[in-house]
Design a protein around this nucleic acid. Structure first.
Lengths: 338, 338
DNA sequence: TTGAAAGCGCTAACAT
DNA sequence: ATGTTAGCGCTTTCAA
């Protein structure tokens, strides 16, 4: 019988292939990595021999030589109630699918909002080439850590820190669309509650809001726009004023504002949506289980994951920032505006 | 000013520490790994110097030298509807927490039931030392792959392949407890539907069932036990007979059987729980969203994750199989038995 | 108790 | 176009 089981040797190394062919390691390396000039003939021979020996490159060794890991770290929230939401799992799916197509792997860390210890371990152990954050708190220790260590990273969602790469939807058009819906569903006096205009995202939202009125031909009342809202108290005050102004709807710039506004309404015993409607611009998962369900803009978590993955990979490899365009979203109409 | 920023050098290697101390790399390595005899004095010096230089071992390099990765692969289901279920996310949380405490990391792969390609990639690239499967199908290609490649692995849940290490609950006592509940809640004629008795797990369930009757003092009618059920048809037939035997409850050995039984009942227009009650022994997530909700035994996914992680780590390191005892569970009473 | 040296499997100058 | 030579940062014999 033939010695055909040399085919299934435990592990063939690049060196083994080289020796079997009587060439040098570098020749084999060049062929397999596609770098450097190689005669077509030897290329063929190497390829064939490698295939025959079932050679599989050792990614770890390659990584050591190139200071790469071919791993992307993903930080997922640890909190139980967030775990219940499929948002993150779907993000993860998008991320995995994308990075694996480039032969990268995903290393996950579950971490509470203010706990960067898992991420720190990951970085200390040099296990990842880049990181995807799936949420961010203000003064996020994770962000700090990543910046300090010069690790390429992106954030899924929005943060006020404009220096971090954020994977997000087209806020302007989404806000325009949501506003248009509100107008068409009969809201004649909608108030807009916005955070600081020094954040681009809020400017976009404002523009979308204005555009919607322009397109609809309805009168736009700028006195119903409250921007630069920060802190609980400011929101409560705004809600108070809004109620006096005889509004029939409140559009909140983000979920933090929305939560506060809802609390204020509750305190004043105003019922949603009977006495006033409310909608939240934007998609963070915290509102998902609220009663009544809140109309809002939702991003597709799978797509967010995909885009985030592509972006970190570009940050790592292509240098070019990969202007990946905007992400799709959907307006999800819930009871709060019916 | 002092040159104190040598403290925050980009990266100190083991060699750097050695040179700074005028000792050899191996000495430093020994101290840091705790292997080999070292004088207490040099030990101290090395430790201190390493700390001062903020030396962090390069896990990748260590891995290359030891043929280890310090990563555990976790295969999660890719299907969207399964993604909706928090079961897997909670497993993952338990796994992460456990492995990270041993300075391992988790690499995830999302894969459809019959698709081992991601796992294959993971193995081919030598990215993991062991694997945790979070479900298994019959003739699972993943299991095959892992066995062929001699990768230590465990499965969360049950499979008929007794050669794979399964992380599971105490089926006997759980079944006993569930049966006891059924008896006490008024079921006087409960039928038991079981898979093949050649699987230990089904024997355990049977024993638990019998025990419950023994303890309760009620008469036990063995003619209401249907075992070695395999295939749709067999289950349908059994359900038919059961209905003729004037039973008031059906206890299903697993969720596959339960799904079939429910289908058979539906077809015969028998309503649950009005005309007959039904409960499923065991916890796989497929039943979780059924209407009406099905009473069943539920394992704690977090604990399953923890146990799976511990077990695979033992498989990798301690050699000893780490008899990790049984896992806790809870009987979750739902509408199907009320 | 410590050091020297080889090696893990690969890449990347630098030759030729 | 190909080979030689150093590494990457660590572990691990084998000597001393």
């Amino acid at each position: 019988m033939s010695i055909s089981n040399e085919t299934c040797n435990p592990k063939a190394s690049l060196d083994d292939v080289a020796k079997a062919l009587g060439v040098s390691k570098s020749t084999v390396s060049r062929v397999l990595s596609g770098k450097g000039r190689i005669s077509e003939e030897t290329r063929q021979r190497v390829m064939q021999c490698a295939a025959q020996m079932n050679y599989q490159p050792n990614v770890i060794a390659r990584g050591l030589a190139q200071s790469k890991t071919f791993n992307i770290g993903v930080v997922l929230p640890y909190e139980k109630d967030l775990g219940e939401i499929p948002f993150f799992q779907n993000c993860l799916t998008g991320i995995c699918e994308t990075v694996s197509s480039r032969d990268y792997d995903v290393i996950v860390a579950m971490a509470a909002a203010d706990d960067a210890s898992q991420l720190e371990r990951m970085i200390r152990n040099r296990k990842v080439d880049g990181v995807i954050l799936t949420r961010s708190v203000t003064d996020d220790p994770a962000v700090k850590l990543l910046k300090e260590n010069n690790i390429p990273f992106v954030l899924i969602g929005s943060t006020s820190d404009d220096s971090v790469v954020q994977i997000d939807i087209d806020h302007e058009s989404a806000c325009c669309e949501l506003t248009t819906y509100l107008i068409s569903s009969g809201c004649s006096r909608t108030a807009l509650l916005l955070g600081s205009k020094s954040h681009n995202v809020n400017v976009s939202r404002y523009n979308g809001f204005v555009n919607a009125y322009a397109k609809s031909g309805k009168a736009f009342d700028n006195s119903l726009v409250y921007d630069n809202l920060s802190g609980r108290r400011a929101i409560e005050l705004a809600v108070g004023e809004i109620l006096n102004k005889d509004c029939d709807c409140i559009l909140c710039g983000d979920d933090y504002i929305c939560v506060r506004a809802l609390a204020a309404l509750k305190e004043k015993q105003i019922s949603v949506p009977d006495e006033i409607k409310i909608a939240s611009f934007y998609n963070s998962p915290v509102l998902q289980s609220y009663t009544p369900p809140i109309t809002s803009v939702n991003a597709d978590p799978f797509e967010l994951g995909e885009a985030a993955a592509q972006t970190v990979l570009s940050l790592i490899n292509d240098s070019d920032p990969s202007a990946c365009g905007f992400l799709s979203y959907e307006i999800s109409i819930k009871r709060s505006t019916l």
